[in-house]
């Protein structure tokens, strides 16, 4: 037993930090994979309503978004505005917006195009109804009302 004692050091051995980068890299890769970069900057405030019966939007590349909500910039008032891509628009612009979105897709995929309506929950239905009428006119029948998943209280 005494031969071990001879070699033993007094000070504590330092903990190896060599595995620390590995752990951090693991976390890093997780976030890199799960991250989705936002493509457009939002100019309107969107607080989506909650619902329990939600479906996932499939094929993100085949979805065009219409944002409706009060502008973030307070100088523009509080009336809900429509944002398409990167700027404010009026209801009449939706037809050309959808046509542009169609142009950008393959011919095969065009009929699968979905329009996702991202609307703030305090917006009145009037503007949403107008948008829906425009979408009907241009033939974009597949829509999805963007909602957050409500956690069930049980």
């Amino acid at each position: 037993m005494s031969k071990f004692k001879k070699e033993g050091k007094k000070e504590l051995p330092t903990i190896s930090t060599a595995s620390l980068p590995d752990i951090i890299f693991m976390l890093l890769f997780f976030f890199m994979v799960s991250t989705t970069m936002r493509e457009t900057d939002l100019f309107v405030k969107i607080n989506a309503p909650e619902a329990t019966e939600v479906q996932k939007l499939e094929k993100k590349s085949l979805v065009s978004f219409i944002y409706v909500g009060p502008p973030l910039n307070k100088k523009l008032g509080t009336e809900p505005r429509i944002q398409l891509n990167d700027s404010f628009h009026v209801v009449d612009d939706i037809v050309s917006f959808i046509e542009n979105e169609r142009e950008a897709r393959d011919e095969v995929d065009r009929k699968f195009l979905t329009t996702s309506l991202k609307v703030d929950k305090d917006v009145k239905m009037g503007i949403v109804t107008d948008i829906k009428q425009e979408l009907r006119k241009v033939g974009a029948f597949k829509i999805s009302y963007s909602t957050r998943k409500k956690m069930e209280e049980k």
């Binding site: 976030f31 799960s34 991250t35 989705t36 936002r38 619902a51 019966e53 939600v54 479906q55 996932k56 939007l57 993100k60 979805v63 979905t114 996702s116 309506l117 829906k132 979408l135 009907r136 033939g139 974009a140 029948f141 597949k142 829509i143 999805s144 009302y145 963007s146 909602t147 957050r148 998943k149």
Partner: peptide
């Protein structure tokens, strides 16, 4: 990172 997956209620508009 934004973890939100886009979810929503799907509907079909009438012609």
């Amino acid at each position: 990172t934004t973890m939100d997956v886009d979810t929503g209620i799907s509907r079909k508009l009438p012609p």
